[in-house]
Design a protein around this nucleic acid. Structure first.
Lengths: 111, 111
DNA sequence: AATATTAATTGTAATATTGCGATGTAGATT
DNA sequence: AATCTACATCGCAATATTACAATTAATATT
């Protein structure tokens, strides 16, 4: 079938999975890391930086934009991309919540 | 083509992407959350809990086991799964490192 | 030994992702 | 207005993922 049964899960579970999916490609991690370093950049910078075709970079940027973790504004002839700090912190919060839930009361591995 | 060009990226980028991919499905998020709550459970528990077929749960468990975030030990006739706290903390660290890198020096959005 | 029980594996169909060339679009430049 | 520049979108081929029925494997139970 190949189609995820989203109706079986909570909105939060589906949301977190969607965010994880957006981060589930090394090119998109690399794009984010470049944006963290450079603060902002344009498509062609990333083509140079990553060595993928322009169309491919554009596609990855769209996926990151779709979950709101980055945003793009038209800057004359080009589009300047940067991280959306509000969404960034929001997503960070989701991960912190998930990872903070491990209680190592018993100490060490459980099985 | 459908094949990721891993050679263009660093080991860290590929590794983080792989971890994100393992979390990139609501069923796997749900499995992890159930393990956080219940401490340990078996395949059939999750079939009941999530409403997916046994084979499907088994497949998701394998993916989580492959990145080491969970582990399974044979418990008589069944297999008891639980979170691997060492790997859990390690992965948490990767995300903390990534999300901690946003410097909001300028304050607010950049573009 | 025969039969349950539990879960991994296999095979298959439907769908999604990755990557890129080609094309389209919109704001600059001459 | 014609051209250039930067990027998005389309269309395609290759590969990956999702889900499940059927089968297999291994341990318990009778």
């Amino acid at each position: 079938m190949g189609v995820t049964k989203t109706d079986l899960f909570t909105t939060e579970q589906n949301e977190l999975a969607k965010v994880a999916k957006a981060l589930a490609h090394p090119a998109r991690i690399a794009i984010i890391q470049h944006l963290l370093k450079a603060n902002a950049c344009i498509n062609s910078d990333l083509v140079q930086e990553l060595g993928l075709a322009q169309a491919t970079i554009s596609q990855h940027l769209r996926e990151l934009k779709e979950i709101g973790i980055i945003q793009g504004t038209i800057e004359g002839v080009s589009v300047s991309y940067c991280i959306n700090p509000i969404k960034w912190k929001e997503i960070e919060g989701h991960f912190v919540t998930l990872f903070g839930q491990l209680s190592i009361i018993s100490g060490g591995s459980c099985c």
